[in-house]
Computed example of a mutant assay.
Amino acid sequence: MKIDRIELFHVKIPLNFIFKSSQTTLNHRETIIIKAVDELGNSGYGEVVAFNEPFYTNETLRDSKNVLINKYIQKLINKDIKHPFDIHKWVDLSYPMALAGLENALVDLYSKSKKKPIMDIVFNEETNNEIYGGITLGDIDIPSLIKQIDNYQNQGYTRFKIKIKPKDGFIKLGAIREKYPDIQLLADANKSYKIEQIEMIKKLDSLNLLCIEEPLDSGNFLEYQKLQEAMNTPICLDESIETIDDLKTAIELKSLKVVNLKAGRIGGMYYAKQMIELCRKNNIKYWIGSMLESGISKILHVHLASLKDTYIPGDLSSSKRYFKKDLIKPEVTSENGIIKVPKGCGLGVEVDENTLKNYTIDYIQIGGEKH
């Protein structure tokens, strides 16, 4: 396929609620939607899931946008691409979120041209037709947490991830576990503890958690090794794993037992597949996260979560939970806590162009005739 043009839609989508973690507070989500168009007029979509501030990783949305416009996209225009993963021969991993968005648009476009679902192109193995959703709840007070868990349990969700910080993390999780002794529960500390607080972290062992995600502020694999040796609760790494070499090192040091994979964070499906294969070889459990993203990126993660050996339900729930109107048709929906995996070509959904334009605060086209 030959890329005629790339269109960038910088969007700002209001959230239905204020999302709080130990690192940030958000009431809207800005991302960049990438539309890749070939010489026949066919299109594919991807999403850049970087945030405006570098609280999660160092790459910001401004960084992503600059490198896409000034470097990455220039390498693609009018280039004949035999396979979307060829992009990784030309583009390094300096800006993985920008790279992932571009790669995902190419994978969607290529899958459509082959008239195949995206997972047939990337993995070519049997997948599930539906997945269990999972709920992530922000750093809010205990009564609000209890109320929301009740609400989402009534909707069929059984797995809950709670954002915590050292000040009151154990108290919140303890209150939840006391009221709900049987729910699937895990914690995400977003790098808010220091290794010197190891005894405080070890207290979480009493709460029967599926794992604790990113507890340490340093991201030092030797410190994680020390912590995992001292704990029964599995350590799950997310943003500390930026590359395949990071994952290899963490596995060799026994710094983790679980990894949270997000294609939008690690450079795309090409690297997600490599990491999943490495996990399989080394008996490391993996599961699929989410980036507080629009349906364009979220539906990609729904596809990834359909692999049969994922550890737990991902951070995936209905579009309506986050946005009044999402960017895809049909939107991501959950019935009794279950999300159906789209069966169409590519991502298996359509992008709602009108909604996309309504949310767009900046538009750039590179290549092709101007529209």
Rank of each mutant, 00 (worst) to 15 (best):
I3L: 11
K12A: 11
F19H: 14
S22F: 04
T24L: 07
L26K: 07
L26F: 05
N27T: 14
I32V: 15
I33G: 01
F51V: 06
F51N: 04
P54N: 01
L76V: 13
I77G: 12
K82G: 06
I87T: 06
A100L: 05
P117F: 00
P117L: 07
D120P: 05
N124F: 03
E126M: 11
E130L: 03
I131E: 04
Y132H: 14
I135V: 15
I135F: 02
L137E: 06
G138K: 00
D141M: 01
P143F: 08
S144E: 14
D150T: 02
Y152Q: 13
I164A: 08
K165F: 02
P166H: 04
D168N: 14
K172D: 09
E178V: 00
P181Q: 07
L185F: 00
L186W: 06
A189R: 07
A189M: 04
E196T: 11
Q197N: 14
I201D: 06
K203C: 05
C211D: 09
L216F: 04
G219N: 09
E229V: 07
N232S: 13
T233H: 14
D238W: 00
T243S: 13
D245Y: 08
D246H: 05
V259S: 12
N260R: 03
L278K: 00
C279N: 10
N282C: 01
N283P: 03
K285N: 15
Y286D: 01
H303I: 03
A305I: 00
A305M: 00
T310C: 06
P313L: 10
L316D: 02
L327F: 11
E335N: 09
N336A: 07
G337E: 05
G337T: 07
N354G: 00
Y359N: 07
D362C: 03
D362Y: 09
K370P: 00
